[in-house]
């Protein structure tokens, strides 16, 4: 995905697509047609839809809550704790006798929520900064680019771990720190786009009408770079989910008893030596399905908008 991003940020791509989009009036119609022809992307949209439904309404059929301990099974989790319809633990129970099904529903909620909210927020912030840097150029631009370069060479995990350890581990904190870490999302590409667009006639025209710079950026330039923000978001969301899962795996993620895919995978991985593989398999499967779906959706969007680069 990082290599796909590299292409997305290359000058060639920016020019190709901007040119094509501005020159052809049927750009969006063509893009939509191409996307709907992409079977994998459509299946993925459907899968993601099911996942979201599962996260929202999955609890309806759960027989246990995600923090409740089934004392009947404690001490014989390996023998009796596996998936079973009879005792209501569809996905089995975890090491502490808690219902895996309810925990996977809860984990999906957390991971998807963090992924989408933090992902979209990061891209919006990064794009806005990028748009301003590209539009105004000059010193502001060089400060932003300097910060960007430095930030890219700092492993985010440092900041992440320190922040999480010192400021608590609630859902809100998690989203906040991800947005802080990801403030560069979409910055470079939007900056490049805006730099190209700011010298176009329609921007000059708007300037002559006396519109303020901010109004020009948001009302006249933003609609033209919407597509790039959309594809970029489709790539950032799975990355954010992955990021959240990684820090949860490291034990500095979301606070127990709340959970996420990463935390569940981590617990499952630590107990797999005991033979309770379902504790790893179910959360891993959901994580994998989400990642595959998001990958193909992002891929489909990219292909639809940038048919020149079918890798």
């Amino acid at each position: 995905m990082t290599s796909a991003k590299a292409r997305l940020q290359s000058q060639a791509f920016v020019e190709d697509v901007a040119e094509e989009m501005l020159s052809s009036r049927s750009f969006w119609a063509d893009a939509r047609a191409r996307f709907f022809k992409n079977r994998m992307a459509l299946v993925s949209v459907f899968m993601l839809f099911l996942l979201v439904l599962f996260a929202i309404f999955g609890n309806v059929i759960a027989q246990w809550s995600y923090e409740e301990i089934d004392w009947n099974l404690l001490g014989m989790i390996k023998e009796e704790g596996g998936p079973s319809i009879a005792n209501g633990h569809y996905f089995g129970v975890d090491e502490l006798g808690r219902d895996m099904y309810a925990r996977v529903v809860q984990g999906s909620r957390t991971s998807l929520l963090v992924g989408f909210v933090a992902g979209i927020a990061s891209v919006l912030i990064g794009s806005t900064i990028g748009a301003f840097a590209g539009y105004f150029g000059g010193r502001f631009d060089s400060i932003v680019m300097g910060g960007y370069t430095i930030w890219l060479s700092v492993p985010y995990i440092i900041f992440f771990v320190v922040w999480q350890a010192f400021f608590g581990r609630s859902l809100g904190q998690m989203i906040l720190v991800i947005v802080l870490v990801n403030w560069t999302a979409g910055l470079l590409i939007v900056r490049g786009q805006v730099m190209m667009l700011r010298n176009r006639e329609f921007v000059d025209a708007a300037r002559m009408l006396g519109l303020s710079d901010v109004a020009i950026i948001f009302r006249h330039i933003a609609p033209n770079i919407l597509w790039v923000v959309v594809i970029y978001t489709s790539m950032v969301v799975p990355e954010v989910i992955m990021m959240e899962s990684l820090v949860s795996f490291l034990g500095v993620g979301i606070q127990e008893p709340n959970t996420s895919w990463g935390a569940l995978i981590s617990e499952g991985a630590s107990t797999m030596t005991f033979g309770t593989l379902w504790q790893l398999a179910f959360p891993a499967a959901f994580f994998v399905i989400a990642q595959v779906s998001l990958y193909y959706i992002g891929d489909g969007l990219r292909d639809a908008l940038d048919p020149k680069d079918r890798l």
Partner: peptide, 26 residues
């Protein structure tokens, strides 16, 4: 290669590592 690219997207290091231990060690 295409397969590998998708594979790596799906199995980041923290999923891959347990899987490898499951296979190569256990």
């Amino acid at each position: 290669m295409t397969g590998l690219a998708i594979f790596s997207q799906i199995f980041p290091n923290f999923v891959l590592a347990p899987l490898m231990v499951l296979l190569f060690t256990l």
